[in-house]
Design a protein around this nucleic acid. Structure first.
Lengths: 142, 142
DNA sequence: TCTTGACTTCCAGTGCGCTCGAAGTTCTAG
DNA sequence: CTAGAACTTCGAGCGCACTGGAAGTCAAGA
């Protein structure tokens, strides 16, 4: 990631990997799977040159992945964006659907977390009782 | 799930599936994978008869699964519980580790959700602008 | 008793999301 | 100019968590 200009314009695939937290394999896979808005430009017609907008897009779809959107769904979304302006309403619907799913997911996890905390409290209690019932071996240490 | 007594004591595998939200396949798989505390008792030495405690256990490990704990990890936890009392501290540690992971996961999802909401707001804006710039075709309809 | 459907075991198959390796090409530091 | 690291494509392989099907057994209502 050598800085050659005041504002770097593009990045190698390993730079992109470092910037997004994905592996180079995953980045190539994403492109093959049609997740990028267009074919990532190549330098000298071979090596990929990720632009800032490409990095930004990968970072966004990584958020979608992390919240459970499948590769297939992201592909559909990318196709929409690719097909140009005019379908903002559709895209909005897709995003709002996803938002709702994520919100539901969040509530679910909160419920599970509460149950896990409850279980943890039970263990604390049980351990406390055991200590109270057993004669202390050494009160001074640790 | 025919109620034969005042308090039903056990359930068929399809009852268990209904009660836990898992498939009968998954229930058998869980048992094979060593996730149950002990072999689920059989009636007439063939059909599984899930007791209340089995159902409860499955419901709990389903929470662990839903919060991202792997089958392998749940197996380890089940082995601990199986090996009897005396390792409550270890079990507690395992659960607290998981709790922390889930809490981190929760915060991450919240961050992603914020980004998704931001994107949605952008769409709303863009759609509003488009409508403002385009001459209305029919002000009376819808 | 008969029939029908739910159950049993065992093993192979599936879908997802990467991950790896081969074989060849290109970039870069010395 | 050269060595070696980083890149390219392509296709196969992997780990996970189930899922499905075959072949046989069991159970409950008509």
């Amino acid at each position: 990631m050598a800085i050659t200009e005041i504002e770097p314009r593009d990045y190698s695939i390993s730079d992109a990997a470092a910037l997004t937290g994905l592996s180079v394999h995953a980045l190539r896979y994403y492109e093959r799977a049609g997740l990028m808005l267009d074919r990532v430009p190549r330098a000298a017609s071979t090596h990929r040159r990720y632009r800032d907008m490409d990095i930004g897009w990968v970072q966004f779809i990584t958020r979608l992945r992390s919240t459970g959107m499948s590769i297939r769904q992201i592909h559909e979304y990318a196709e929409m964006v690719r097909s140009g302006d005019g379908n903002e309403v559709e895209r909005l619907q897709l995003m709002e659907q996803h938002r709702q799913r994520v919100e539901a997911q969040l509530h679910e996890i909160e419920g599970h977390l509460a149950a896990i905390r409850f279980k943890i409290d039970l263990y604390h209690e049980r351990i406390a009782n055991r200590c109270a019932l057993q004669p202390p071996t050494d009160r001074t240490s640790s």
